[in-house]
Simulated assay, not measured.
Amino acid sequence: MTPSVSVVICAYTEQRWDDVLAAVASVQAQSLDPHELIVVIDHNADLHARLARALPDAIVIENQEARGLSGGKNTGVAAATGEVVAFLDDDAVAGPEWLRTFAEGYADPEVFGVGGLTLPWWATERPRWFPEEFDWVVGCTFTGRDPGRVRNLLGGNASFRRVAFALAGGFPTHIGRTSARERPLGCEETEFCIRLATRRPGARFVYDPRAVIWHRVPVARQEFRYFRSRCYAEGLSKALVTRSVGVANGLSVERRYATAILGRGVARGMLAAWRGDPAGLRRSGAITAGLLSTTTGYAVGTFRGLTAGTSR
């Protein structure tokens, strides 16, 4: 039997007005109708009032927790009544089979989460220096992520059984984005998946690339400065995750990513340069710079955690 699926979209700024409407329209055009569509507004009363008027067929509510994406998601989960809760970024649009693919993934009772493929929707065109291995920097699926069972899902294109939140609690509000003006932290879904798997042994998460969405990448996020900043912030986030769930769980996937996937990416860029594509060297350099920035962020975040622990 196909489970009912509630969709949650978290929004926070009027600057993404058209994006939010496009995201909502893509949900309303699904081949499988959502059980309900919940739009959570992050501490912005004007935006809440405006969207409530513009979206009469959606449930438009205000974030009842701390400012930020985690609080907004938790508020959406609390309001949801479907058997499954799916999350879509407010600056993304879903393909027509997105929800149906998610729902079919729950035929196995041990599957507690299903995620999909997120493709970049570049404002101009893909920068030639930007390595596909780092598409996670702009909220998309990186090259090297294999379909099937995964340790964790990626938050902007993911779904979970609603009972999972009763088992493990909500997304951690001390991890993840809190403001567009602050460092672009993340990993709230990583910590949640690891915590759920610990509290519900046997729970599985599946990545199914047939559940496709397109995530908008504005010009500012196509710049190397943002690339480096986002990598550093990811390192800080990983330090928070490992502090919560331990190093073994928190970095098990990242070790393979750094050694195998990034290693192949550097080699591929150098080979492309040898074959006449000068941007190949730039991609190899960006991979190295991204790894160094992430590692530095992790080291700084770990040191801060140790310092905070000893000062208590």
Rank of each mutant, 00 (worst) to 15 (best):
A49R: 13
G76K: 00
V84A: 00
E104F: 12
Y106A: 11
V77F: 00
N74G: 05
D42E: 08
T81S: 12
V85K: 03
E62P: 03
F87D: 01
D46K: 14
S70C: 07
L99F: 12
A45D: 14
G72Y: 04
A80L: 02
F87K: 08
D57R: 15
S26N: 00
A52N: 12
A92I: 07
T75A: 10
A79P: 15
A66E: 13
E83G: 03
E104K: 09
L51I: 02
P56W: 14
L51Q: 08
A94T: 01
E97L: 07
E65M: 11
L21F: 09
D42T: 04
E104R: 01
A54N: 03
I41Q: 09
V39M: 00
P34Q: 02
R67W: 15
D57G: 09
A78H: 14
R67T: 11
S26D: 07
P34D: 10
I38W: 04
A54Y: 13
D42F: 09
G68E: 01
N74Q: 06
A22T: 09
S31H: 11
V84D: 02
G72R: 03
A49N: 15
A78C: 03
D89C: 03
G68H: 12
V27H: 00
Q64L: 05
H43K: 15
H35S: 13
A58V: 02
L47Q: 09
L55V: 00
H35K: 15
A94R: 01
L99R: 03
S70Q: 12
A54F: 12
L69M: 11
E62H: 02
G72I: 00
Y106R: 00
D42W: 06
A92N: 04
A49C: 10
N74I: 04
E83W: 04
Q64H: 15
A52G: 06
D33K: 14
A80R: 08
L55T: 08
P56Q: 11
G82F: 07
S70F: 10
V84R: 05
G71W: 12
F102I: 08
N44A: 13
R100C: 08
Q28H: 13
P56M: 13
H48F: 14
V39H: 11
I38H: 00
A23W: 00
R67L: 09
A92V: 01
L55Q: 13
L88R: 01
A66N: 14
R53N: 12
R67I: 02
G72K: 01
G71R: 09
V24H: 11
R50N: 10
G95W: 04
G68S: 04
A92K: 03
F102K: 01
T75R: 07
G68T: 07
A78R: 14
R100E: 14
L21N: 12
A79G: 10
Q30F: 10
L55G: 11
A92F: 06
H48D: 14
A49L: 09
R100S: 12
D89N: 12
I38F: 05
W98A: 10
G82V: 06
A52R: 14
A107S: 14
Q30Y: 15
I61D: 05
D90H: 09
E62G: 13
H43N: 08
I41W: 11
E36L: 02
A22C: 05
N74S: 07
